[in-house]
Amino acid sequence: MKNIIEIKNLVKKYDNFTLGGLSLDIPSGCIIGLIGENGAGKTTLIKCLLNIIKKDQGEIKIFGKSNYLNDDIGVVLDNMFFPEILKPYEIGKIMQGIYQNWDTELFNNYLKEFELPTNKPIKELSKGMRKKLEIATALSHHPKLLILDEPTSGLDPVVRSEVLDLFLEFIQDEDKSIILSTHITSDLEHIADKIIFIDEGKIVLNEMRDDIIDDYGILKCSKEEFKNIKKEDIVRYKQNKYNYEVLVKNKKEIKKKYKKMVIDNITLEELMVLMIKGEA
């Protein structure tokens, strides 16, 4: 697999936050899910990728080039970014004058598919409709890479699944990739090939989704049972009112080791919470 994004030692410093020394290779043909709590650095990373903010150190290459911003990248940012006085059909006309590969027919099809009014100011559209308009715009210039910051936030479950299906359809072509950040980790359980977990500006996990689901488990036990678990088997643990939740890796081996204890499969959400809130 070719790498579509290569990041070496990326550093971005703020007064009270540092995105520190990130190195990352993102292969083409897959969906990368970026997770982490608010303020963890997901948006900072995406903004660095898109040259919205300037990196302090490091190197970013997309499609093998350092100067990469072109038609091949489709973008959705976390906040609304179209001037709200504009109307969807005007957005189409504007983008026609910006992207060489702009496909008016495709854009109009998306507007129809998403049931978006073409002649209504954006300020009168619901949050979900605006998001759909942004996604339609990002897809309508035939990009090879989609960089999406919270593309599903504000969407109801029905629309969300529509949008996720669109992403899956997009990725059918091996040359294409998506990198998306989200709070809604359950979305990623359906579509992401790889999960990158960022906490306090650092990558704490960078693994294939299937490996995470296969490897990690959550062991729930009493205080006495907890005392019997070897320290090296604990990735993180959290003490609840009545029990302990222990994050374990190599689930199958752990199962053999502690036969009496129950080890459940883990969701990305549980993993995230334990990684952040749990003790090591």
Partner: peptide, 17 residues
């Protein structure tokens, strides 16, 4: 309008934005 809706953050991601 550019400022209010953060258009420029999006515009800079475009070719030669």
């Amino acid at each position: 309008y550019d400022d209010f809706n953060n258009w420029n953050a999006y515009a800079v991601t475009m070719p030669k934005g």
